[in-house]
Write a protein that binds this DNA or RNA. Sequence first.
DNA 1: TAGATTGTTAATCGATTAACAATC
DNA 2: TAGATTGTTAATCGATTAACAATC
Lengths: 202, 202
Amino acid sequence: MTIRRLSVYTRCLLQLEEDGVKTISSEELAERFNLNSAQVRKDLAYFGEFGVRGTGYYVSGLKAELQKILGLDREWQVALVGYGNLGSALFHYKGFTRQGFRITVIFDADPQKAGRSVEGVPILSLRELSQEAKGRNLQIGIIAVPAESAQAVAERLVAAGVKAILNFAPARLKIPKDVRLQNVDLSIELETLSFYLAQATR
Amino acid sequence: MTIRRLSVYTRCLLQLEEDGVKTISSEELAERFNLNSAQVRKDLAYFGEFGVRGTGYYVSGLKAELQKILGLDREWQVALVGYGNLGSALFHYKGFTRQGFRITVIFDADPQKAGRSVEGVPILSLRELSQEAKGRNLQIGIIAVPAESAQAVAERLVAAGVKAILNFAPARLKIPKDVRLQNVDLSIELETLSFYLAQATR
DNA sequence: TAGATTGTTAATCGATTAACAATC
DNA sequence: TAGATTGTTAATCGATTAACAATC
């Protein structure tokens, strides 16, 4: 949860910097997100003494620190697996590139797609993932394939040396403990909403 | 958090039912998700006495109860706004329909798309959202448009009577308190991973 | 120095877990 | 009745918040 908040702070600081704001207090920062100022200070202080008593935090300084902590000060090589609607949407989403996430290779099972390339990024055959992925120094894998093939894809990504996986397939992946897995489960999000609606109409 | 877990339990029970399993104990259920059995019992007991001491929970009975609690025993009318790559991916994602979420209308700003229809669902002009949405009894809106237009879309959805919004745009939406908002933020997910990677390589 | 705001300690709150009487 | 497992109370843990000395 702290990390998610750091991510939110960072985006806010980027905006503040653009707006020409030089310093910001924990109080102001907290206000923007309905958080507690003590929580903001604690989140930040955990990673170092970034603030100046009586003044607050220097926007660009803090931004740079947080980017470093979040690993946003470097480029990450990302493999996208699955180039259907979702995969395509993720590939074209500009927010990723802006932050140093570089999708350098795409894999897809469809022979029609494999062999082509989009915006200079090659689409390779899914079956060749294991060989093709090696030597590319991939750190992150994004899984955007149907649930059935997700586990197999995950295993190949792990074999290719990927240490972090973002999974959009509605499947419970089993992967080694040293590989970090982040699931995005659309059904859970929708069901949270329908729970709320169901409660409201009773 | 409890609601998210209920959602997970439900999916598990569906699987168990298919597998012909009749009863399951909180212990077994907990094991599957690395949870504590007391937590499972507490989550369930909060909504009623669904278990049988000495036996556990009847799979199909509990499934039905949870579906009712989560509002999955009825159909929800969903409006999808934005029919780009992401919107299209969401529309074709079968997981939604399976659970009673019916996308009955799509809105898009592109005049090329407006007027067409996909799988019998009309794509209407975004500008007409306010009028067109009325009378359709929409309960849920999914926002899959660029960040710039997200706020305007949200306001129109609210005006059309939508009480729950699932937002994929990287924007902080301001909406009335009685409307439930669920954000899916892809950047935060990726940044959580890059934080982990950055830590690991130090 | 006076005012502002941090970093941090102590207090509070909520969520998770352990333990067990109730009961099938 | 004996064994199993629930629902629930009490204990524990972790995260959030309040308070304040340190200090710019």
